[in-house]
Design a binder for these strands. Structure first.
Length: 475
DNA sequence: TGAAATGTTGGGGCG
DNA sequence: ACGCCCCAACATTTC
């Protein structure tokens, strides 16, 4: 009978099924499952507000599924682990690997420190389909373009690990002395801004499973095209569940692939590929969250305008499609992907504000805030990243609304004060005749803002700024 | 995973 | 019937 205690450290893998490290741990002994809130090593990337709300609920559900055996700490992990090892005579610790630079550094230190104390660390891949160091070009360099990264690097390599079942009903052990209560992590804000948000969040392992089933039933068959329409149910909305590891990418990959072999399932899998690509970029460029991948952008003439930044953050730019997206973000902790591109392009190219302001705001507001995906995507939209959208590719938020929200359902939902406008002017109220504004109960500059920038002029300014950048590069 | 400017084509109205 | 213009529709180029 196994009665030795082994530690299983939950990190970005808050699930029981398809969890390789947890499976290994449960075969090795009585498992002490624990979670450590680490605000001590995360440097300037402490978890954002919205993510903490999600985490709170996720930990609660995880603890339920462990029959309340989850031990919880708020401390420097090395101290927690060492004390537990000596107190309960633990010789083996299990975890699934993380890939953010600060976590890689931390885990490396912990591993070395523990091994010096004759404690074995067993780490597994539970969060990526292919680990970054395994997907490189023939000459050993990391890929800089998505298509060859995915086609040759990923699809051409060994297939991802197949999902495994959750461990047999575990024999768990809880640290009675030092574990704190979930409430003691203080993950929820004091005021109640998150109440509305939390209602939108389908948190936890079984909810993630349910969302996958719903997506397969409703969205997948129209995913490739339908994913562009923010009012439509053709996307999985699993990003936060994936981020916290409530469902594994391997499970998504094989569930989708085993069901269909068509353009929709291929496209969904390639979106998982973009996630892998983001992790690759972050792994090989540790300063991805704050340094332009393309150095020539270091000279970009960003504006510094707190007023327009605030208007963007609050969804009061006077551009309905942008405001709808920013309000969806603030209210729900989520934003549809198409709209993320629109509001990102608008911040960087129309307001001419540094992409890092956008990255910071998203980091704080998104329940799916993920260091790799968030920073890689902001660099992409700004044009300074790997395989980036060219700088001159500037989204027109009016056209985007007309194309992808043609009946106005999305904009009307989040910008109700202009809901009475006919579709023709819904995306550009400043063009509506006075009579129509009046009939719709709108006073521009009062009940809804006038646009804070002229789309045409700001576009031209951005193009000129880009041209100056190209010139500098040649000098 | 753009948009606008510019170029080309072809149908229809009209003298 | 014919040339001419207009312009929508589409294609190409440019940023």
């Amino acid at each position: 009978m196994k009665d030795n205690i082994v530690i299983y450290w939950f990190r970005q893998d808050l699930r029981l099924s398809d969890n390789p490290a947890l499976c290994a741990a449960s075969k090795a002994g009585r498992v002490l499952p624990l979670y450590i809130l680490d605000d001590y090593n995360s440097e300037s990337y402490k978890m954002g507000q919205a993510s903490r709300v999600w985490l709170h609920k996720s930990l609660k559900l995880l603890d339920d599924s462990l029959d309340n055996y989850l031990s919880i700490y708020n401390a420097d992990p090395i101290a927690v682990l060492k004390r537990l090892c000596s107190e309960y005579n633990v010789t083996d610790i299990y975890w699934n690997r993380c890939y953010e630079p600060w976590r890689v550094k931390r885990d490396k230190n912990i591993k070395e420190n523990l091994q010096e104390n004759n404690i074995n660390v067993h780490s597994y891949n539970g969060s990526l389909l292919w680990e970054p160091w395994n997907v490189v070009k023939d000459n050993g360099d990391p890929y800089k373009v998505f298509t060859p990264f995915y086609r040759k690097g990923c699809l051409g390599a060994k297939p991802p690990r197949e999902p495994i079942l959750k461990p047999d009903a575990g024999v768990y052990f809880k640290d009675p002395k030092h574990s704190i209560g979930l409430e003691d992590l203080n993950l929820l804000p004091n005021n109640n801004w998150h109440q509305l948000m939390i209602d939108h969040c389908k948190v936890g392992e079984s909810a993630a499973q349910q969302k996958l089933d719903d997506f397969i039933e409703v969205g997948l068959s129209n995913y490739k095209d339908g994913r562009n329409f923010p009012a439509c149910p053709f996307v999985s909305r699993l990003s936060a569940n994936i981020h916290f590891g409530e469902i594994s990418p391997n499970q998504l990959w094989y569930t989708i692939k085993d069901l269909y072999d068509d353009a929709n399932s291929d496209h969904f899998c390639s979106e998982l590929g973009w996630r892998e690509f983001s992790y690759s970029q972050l792994y090989f460029n540790q300063d991805l969250p704050f340094k332009n991948l393309q150095q020539k952008f270091d000279n970009f003439p960003w504006k510094d305008d707190e007023v327009s930044l605030k208007a963007w953050q609050e969804g009061k730019t006077g551009i309905p499609m942008v405001d709808a997206g920013m309000r969806e973000l603030y209210q729900t902790g989520f934003m549809h992907n198409r709209v993320r591109m629109v509001v990102g392009s608008f911040l960087v190219k129309n307001l001419c504000l540094d992409w890092r302001y956008g990255e910071r705001w998203f980091w704080d507001c998104l329940v799916d805030a993920d260091l790799a995906s968030n920073s890689a995507s902001w660099q992409w939209v700004a044009g300074c990243g790997a395989d980036a959208s060219p700088y001159f590719r500037i989204f027109n938020p009016v056209t985007q609304g007309q194309k992808f929200d043609s009946d106005g359902e999305y904009v009307r939902k989040y910008v109700p004060e202009i809901a009475k406008l006919p579709n023709k002017f819904l995306f550009s109220p400043w063009e509506a005749p006075l009579l129509i504004l009046k009939e719709s109960g709108i006073v521009l500059g009062d009940t809804y803002p006038k646009p804070i920038v002229d789309l045409k002029k700001s576009r031209e300014y951005a193009l000129a700024a880009f041209a100056s950048l190209k010139k500098e590069q040649n000098d």
